[in-house]
């Protein structure tokens, strides 16, 4: 009665967005063992970057021209910001105790959020984001918006690209080497500083794409959208196995499903009817995180760097 296929699709779509962001957490963590709390904010700035491009284009522009430009705008914005934060905030602390970069990451997160809140024009309330023309499409009783198709395409292409990049390019192999053992990698002639910057930039690029996807799907963006979304994305990365790129995507999908399905189907469990509403869904996501940590701490697909730390 609750239109299960539609709910599954919605959950997967939400999860794909989480997955795109989670990739950034997982790459950076895999290489420098830093939970980059600011990554959610990188995602948010990407969305605002895309919006700025759109506003700069003028109102008559076709969305088919605007979308690629907005994507570029988002990727450039989030990459530049991510690389800058790495350079200015994280790199000087590379040899400091672990607490220092973590606290710095919190500081960066709050700073970025407040910069957008305080200085982006009318960002104190949500800003309208353009939507894609066309749609909705009915496919086998499931309603699909055109923005949903964008999410699917973006997620698939991004994951495939990343897999190719990491496995088959020189830089990708250098990243793997650095993740396994930074000191030895350095001895082998790998510029680890460069690898770390690339890791940040890659993650930020995906976050930028996710930012556009988010804006297109929900039609609005806001300065604080990165905080909770980032938290979920990190949960997704842990779920899938931190350091594992496919894991991040899988974790995102699982988490999206959990959030969407618990909001409806928990009610069918006897005695639990009160715990099933959208407002409980984040609680269930959190419960899943705790359960995974208890039962399978290495994540669903296992960590690529499980023997570290």
């Amino acid at each position: 009665m609750h239109e299960l296929p539609q709910n599954l699709v919605n959950g997967l779509l939400l999860g794909a967005t989480y997955g795109l962001i989670a990739v950034g957490y997982t790459i950076v963590y895999g290489i420098v063992q830093l939970i980059n709390f600011a990554h959610g904010e990188i995602f948010m700035t990407g969305a605002f970057g895309a919006l700025s491009v759109y506003l700069g284009l003028g109102s008559g522009t076709s969305m088919w021209i605007a979308i690629p430009l907005m994507l570029i705008g988002a990727i450039v914005t989030s990459t530049v910001i991510a690389v800058l934060t790495e350079r200015l905030a994280y790199r000087p602390l590379r040899n400091a105790p672990r607490l220092a970069p973590l606290i710095t990451a919190i500081g960066v997160s709050i700073t970025l959020q407040q910069l957008v809140w305080g200085f982006y024009p009318s960002a104190k309330s949500p800003r309208v984001f353009p939507s894609l023309p066309g749609g909705p499409f009915h496919i086998g009783g499931v309603l699909i918006q055109s923005a949903d198709i964008f999410v699917v395409v973006a997620a698939v292409i991004s994951t495939l690209f990343l897999a190719y990049f990491v496995r088959s390019t020189r830089t990708g192999r250098a990243m793997q080497a650095t993740a396994q053992d930074p000191d030895t990698a350095k001895l082998m002639g790998i510029n680890t500083d460069r690898v770390i910057v690339i890791a940040f930039a890659l993650g930020a690029g995906f976050a930028g794409i996710a930012g556009v996807a988010w804006g297109l799907r929900y039609g609005e963006i806001k300065f604080d959208m990165g905080f909770l979304t980032g938290l979920y994305a990190f949960t997704a990365a842990v779920l899938g196995g931190i350091g594992n790129i496919y894991g991040a995507m899988l974790g995102g999908l699982v988490l999206g499903l959990v959030q969407n399905l618990t909001a409806i189907y928990i009610a069918d469990i006897p005695g639990m009817s009160q715990f099933s509403s959208q407002s409980w869904s984040s609680v269930w996501a959190f419960v899943i995180l705790i359960l995974v940590l208890m039962v399978r701490p290495q994540g669903l697909l296992g960590e690529r760097v499980a023997d570290r730390a």
């Binding site: 973590l102 938290l231 407002s279 409980w280 984040s282 609680v283 959190f286 995180l289 940590l293 730390a309």
Partner: peptide
Amino acid sequence: TLRVRGDYLAIVTLGFGEIFRIVVQN
């Protein structure tokens, strides 16, 4: 959380802080 890895504590507690408010509201 602590059994796994110190870093995870940061994110789990961050989540708990948010969840606490939501649960109390609910």
